[in-house]
């Protein structure tokens, strides 16, 4: 069952077309990774989904309700964390967490709040003016996770967190998933998306260029091979080879996953001494789309 569904969202800011027909669907109990480079339209899409910006055209629903018309109702069941958190400098972190919880119409669950504060190692008695960027981010995360929401919308939530905190964040998301909650996670930290997400959508220049489950997208990815051979390999004849670095008889290159079979057959004729492969990562997938227009990669 889909929790969030958007069809053909466009958004124009004057002459600038920020979004150009974005489709998005998040199912119940799913963690959806929303990735794209800076300025691709991630935050614009999310703000439309929050009913903060009005889409120029297209429609979007959360829990079956229109995101613009029924924003207030929807927001009772969602929690949001922006990438750049600014808080009221003369209130403490603890006060803000409680305030947000109250605004959602819920009572403050002290046990849950304390557990989260403990977990994210936040000092809730400090005034927000004195928090560092990472600590402000933690305040927003704790207040989002303290809410018993059905859908968590997180816009690059780990920017400013140290790796240790990132891990705790990932654990928390995994737990939410186990509880059957849905998460829309926008990011450009790909390892994070890869670890957490079931489904991935890639946006660039205001258009969704790929979406589907990670498995479905693997065919678009490349495998990295490190090879040492006895004889020279004629790489030029091969299709589907990218970014080759040749150093004598050692080679490092990327192979389109669907060409892997041909390439392996070809290499094996040159007398393989050593071969290492690295699994296709989302990074490559992302890079491939990224360089798409510049490099003109065949697919």
């Amino acid at each position: 069952m889909s929790v969030l569904k958007a069809r053909g969202l466009t958004k124009h800011f004057g002459k600038v077309k920020a979004l150009n027909g974005v489709d998005l669907e998040v199912n119940e109990g799913e963690v959806y990774g929303f990735i794209g480079p800076n300025g691709a339209g991630k935050s614009t899409t999310i703000r439309i989904l929050l009913g903060i910006l009005k889409a120029t055209s297209g429609e979007a629903q959360i829990f079956g309700k229109d995101v613009w018309e029924d924003a207030v109702d929807i927001h009772k069941r969602i929690a949001y964390v922006p990438g750049d958190v600014n808080l009221w400098s003369n209130l403490t972190g603890g006060e803000i967490i409680d305030y947000f919880t109250k605004m959602r119409g819920a009572e403050v669950d002290l046990k849950r709040k304390e557990a989260l504060i403990e977990r994210f190692q936040l000092d809730p008695t400090k005034k927000c003016g004195t928090y560092s960027k990472g600590n402000r981010q933690k305040v927003a995360l704790v207040s989002a996770f303290a809410a018993d929401a059905d859908l968590y919308i997180l816009d690059e939530p780990t920017s400013g967190l140290d790796p240790l905190m990132e891990r705790i964040f990932q654990e928390t998301i995994t737990e939410l998933k186990e509880e059957g909650k849905s998460v829309l996670l926008s990011s450009h930290i790909l390892s994070e998306v890869e670890k957490l997400c079931d489904t991935v959508g890639i946006i660039r220049d205001g258009e969704m260029i790929e979406s589907g489950s990670l498995k479905e997208l693997r065919h678009l990815t490349r495998t990295i091979l490190y090879v040492e051979t006895k004889q020279k390999i004629a790489l030029d004849d091969l299709e589907g080879i990218h970014n080759a670095v040749v150093n004598g008889l050692s080679y490092e290159f990327q192979v389109d996953t669907e060409r892997l079979d041909d390439v392996m057959k070809h290499i094996s004729q040159s007398g393989v001494i050593k071969i290492e492969s690295a699994p296709p990562t989302l990074e490559d997938l992302f890079m491939r789309h990224y360089e798409g227009e510049v490099g003109g990669v065949q697919s």
């Binding site: 903060i52 927001h75 949001y80 919308i153």
Partner: peptide, 14 residues
């Protein structure tokens, strides 16, 4: 400062 955005993401009126 982006704080109205935080508020608007809560069940508050426009």
């Amino acid at each position: 400062e982006g704080r109205v955005e935080l508020i608007r993401a809560l069940p508050t009126g426009r």
